[in-house]
Design a protein around this nucleic acid. Structure first.
Lengths: 190, 190
DNA sequence: TGTTTTTTGTTGCTTAAGCAACACAGGAGT
DNA sequence: ACTCCTGTGTTGCTTAAGCAACAAAAAACA
């Protein structure tokens, strides 16, 4: 069968260990600043040996990367953005998702240091880029899809972050409608 | 320090595995008859390899024994019966605990087969016996403490089982008061 | 009844997790 | 400056868990 090789079956022990680490990490992120979280703390809360941590991640920055990978990916999946096509509505949904994600992570995660935010930005923007690139694959008449995806991912993240800094009450809907033209500037008509 | 050697530190992997097995087993017991539960089922629900099960228990009967050990012990601890002394009140509390335990296990565990009940009886009665033996250690003037504990443990279990078969509404209190003399028949005055 | 199918224990081998110990880096306080 | 302390990566070695495969028992089914 092999629906997709993406679904690699991996050792149940590894699954569990990573799950413990992720859970502990997310819990700690909601309690204290990323920079003040230690690997020792993570492993103690996860109930695993510290050595085991290093068998999975290089350090806590690496872990943050992997965690964001999973968390934001799950966010996209929840909105079915990973299984749809290029459209104006989906672009709005994407922008909305990013807005909410950044807002939530800045409230849930105790005062994010600059290192932290840099990692978040890089990882999330990368996923936005990949998604848009995937969308554009089945759209004709775009000269440089890669560059368009890059530009748009920066635009989206930037706009979302800007919005999240000024917590507009009542959801990002109005904001999204206003700035959507900026997002689609480098994209084909949808 | 070594408060007591009873608290043996054991490998976290072992702790987890046993915890998974116990949880899965208790969940299954609340869903179906013990005799229809398979080791394969337990390990699948526990998310562990079947081979690992046999590294901890001989078979599902062995597991039932170990499970009862922990569960009933926890029940005793909850009523602080393991850290108190011989008295009329504590005897009543013990009898009450056994009554409730047997009633609960016969309702929570789907139709207990005779094998099942035999194991329960043996294991629980053993713990009752040990407890009473411990109580009697600090009581003077008892000739054969061991035999007294044996006799009383059988009495208590038998009376509790008898009560649980005829579910007297409103708790076992009245029943306990009535039969307490039978329990204390082989015991020193308290 | 006889014949599949499932479950059971058990085996040898692989891999992940635990553990103790280490040198080293950074911070806190004196 | 200094020590003291805590966290960091990393190492070699031990132990537990995973895995595939097996024969035999038990269940399920015809």
């Amino acid at each position: 069968m092999e629906m997709s090789v993406i679904e690699k079956e991996l050792d149940p022990r590894v699954r569990r260990t990573q799950s413990y680490i992720l859970d502990a990490f997310r819990a700690l992120l909601s309690e204290k600043a990323f920079k003040s979280i230690t690997v020792k703390e993570i492993t103690e809360r996860a109930g695993i040996n510290r050595t085991t941590f290093y068998a999975h991640y290089q350090d806590k920055f690496d872990l943050l990367n992997a965690a964001l990978q999973m968390i934001f990916e799950a966010e996209l999946e929840q909105n079915a953005l990973n299984v749809c096509h290029y459209s104006r509505e989906n672009l709005k949904a994407l922008l909305r998702t990013v807005c909410q994600f950044i807002r939530d992570s800045s409230t849930e995660c105790k005062l994010a240091n600059s290192q932290f935010e840099l990692i978040v930005e890089k990882q999330v923007r990368r996923q936005i880029q990949d998604l848009i690139e995937m969308w554009l694959e089945e759209v004709e008449g775009v000269r440089d899809k890669k560059s368009a995806a890059v530009a748009t991912s920066w635009t989206i993240y930037g706009l979302a972050e800007h919005w999240s800094q000024d917590p507009d009450q009542g959801g990002p809907e109005r904001y999204i409608d206003r700035v959507l033209p900026l997002v689609t500037a480098n994209l084909p008509a949808a």
